[in-house]
Amino acid sequence: MKKILVTGANGQLGSELNLLSKIYSQFEWIFADRNQVALDNLSILESQLESVNPNIIINCAAYTAVDKAESETELADIINHLAVEVLAHWSSKNNANLIHISTDYVFDGTSSIALNEEALTKPINVYGKTKLAGEEVCLKQNPNAIIIRTSWVYSSFGNNFVKTMSRLMQERDSLNVVNDQIGSPTYAADLAQSIMLIITNSNWKAGIYNFSNEGEISWYEFALAIKEIGGYNCELGGIPSSSYPTPAKRPAYSLLDKSKIKKTYNVSVPDYKQSLKKMMSL
C-alpha cells in the first residue's frame, strides 16, 4: 500500500485532502502538522521524512502570511524555499513522487491576459519571492516533481476571505473591498480533487501546472458573490488598492490559464460561483 504524506495538514488544502482521504482508502495517509514534519526546523526535517518514509508527498505547508513575510523574511524563506529543497532532495533520492503547492504571487501582476505556466515570473513581495525560490529549487533537486500554482484559496476550514467577508457582512452595514486586483478564487476542495486525479493517474508528467476556479473577477466582485449567495444586506463599495495600503504589494492581475492541467489530466474546473455556493451551503 502506497503511503501519502500531507504536510500542512491543518491548513485549508490539508484539511480538504483529509476529508477526501476517506474515499481513497487504497492509500495509507499520514497527515502531518508542524510537530510531525517541521518545515521550519531544517536540522530535523530529513530524519522526520526518513521515519515516515512516504511514497508520495503533497506539500501543502507554506508560510502564507503575505504582509507579515515582509518583516519575517528569514522564516518565510526557510519554510517556502529551504524546506522545499530538503523535501525535493529527499523525494528524489528515495524515488518518491512530490507535489508541491505554489502561488500566483510569483507574478508581478502587469499582464492583461491569463498567465500560463511559461509566463515570466517576477514577484513583487517577499512571500512571492520565497515561493518562487521554492519552485526553482524544487525542480532543480527533483526534476520529476509536480508544482501546482493556485490563487485566492478558500475553504470551510481555516481563515480566508469568504469566511471573513461573511462575518463582516453580518456585523456591519457597509464594507469597502479592493476592486483593482484581478484573478480567480480557488475552492480548496476542488484543488484537492484535482491532486487526487493526478496521483491516481498512471501518467505522471512532471512540471508546473496552474489551478484555480473559472472566472475573471476582482476581490470586490468576489465579495458581491458572497453577499448574493449569503443573502446579506451589507452595502459594498469598490476601492483601489491605493486606498488600502498593506506592507506587501499585491499583483494587480494574476489570472491563471488552466489549459495544461485540463489537457494533461482531464481535470474539470468548476466556475467560481458554483464552488462558492457549494462551500457556503456546508
Rank of each mutant, 00 (worst) to 15 (best):
K3E: 01
V6T: 06
G8Q: 08
G11K: 02
Q12F: 01
L13E: 06
G14M: 09
G14F: 05
S15M: 10
S15C: 03
S15I: 07
E16W: 06
N18M: 06
N18K: 15
L19V: 07
L20H: 03
S21E: 11
D33Q: 05
N35Y: 08
Q36R: 04
Q36P: 00
L42R: 13
S47K: 12
S47A: 09
S47D: 14
S47Y: 09
Q48W: 05
S51F: 02
V52H: 02
N55D: 15
C60W: 01
D67G: 03
D67E: 01
E70P: 11
S71C: 04
E74A: 11
A76S: 15
D77V: 00
I79V: 15
N80C: 10
N80V: 06
A83W: 05
E85V: 03
E85T: 09
V86Y: 01
L87A: 01
A88F: 04
A88G: 12
K93Q: 14
N94I: 02
N94K: 13
N95D: 05
N95K: 15
N97T: 10
H100G: 04
I101M: 11
S102N: 10
T103A: 07
D104E: 13
F107Q: 08
T110R: 11
S112T: 15
L115K: 10
N116V: 11
N116A: 06
N125R: 03
V126K: 14
V126W: 02
A133P: 06
G134H: 05
E135S: 10
L139Q: 14
L139N: 08
K140W: 01
Q141W: 02
Q141T: 09
A145F: 02
I146P: 09
I148H: 07
W152C: 07
S155V: 12
S155A: 11
G158Y: 10
N159Q: 13
F161Q: 09
K163F: 00
K163Q: 07
S166Y: 00
S166H: 04
L168P: 01
M169Y: 03
Q170Y: 01
D173R: 10
D173E: 14
N179R: 08
D180K: 05
S184L: 09
S184D: 14
P185H: 07
Y187R: 07
L191Y: 10
L191H: 03
A192V: 08
Q193C: 10
L197I: 13
I198S: 04
T200C: 07
N201G: 11
S202I: 05
S202E: 14
N203G: 00
K205Q: 14
G207Q: 13
I208V: 15
Y209T: 09
N213E: 13
G215H: 10
S218R: 12
W219H: 06
Y220F: 15
F222I: 06
F222L: 14
L224I: 09
K227V: 02
G230C: 03
Y232I: 02
N233D: 13
L236T: 10
S243V: 06
P245I: 08
P245D: 10
P247G: 14
A248R: 02
K249E: 12
P251M: 11
S254M: 10
L255V: 15
D257P: 05
S259C: 03
S259P: 03
K260L: 14
K263S: 14
K263I: 06
Y265G: 12
Y265H: 12
N266D: 08
V269N: 08
V269I: 15
V269T: 13
K273F: 00
L276R: 01
K277G: 09
M279D: 05
M280Q: 08
L282G: 04
L282A: 05
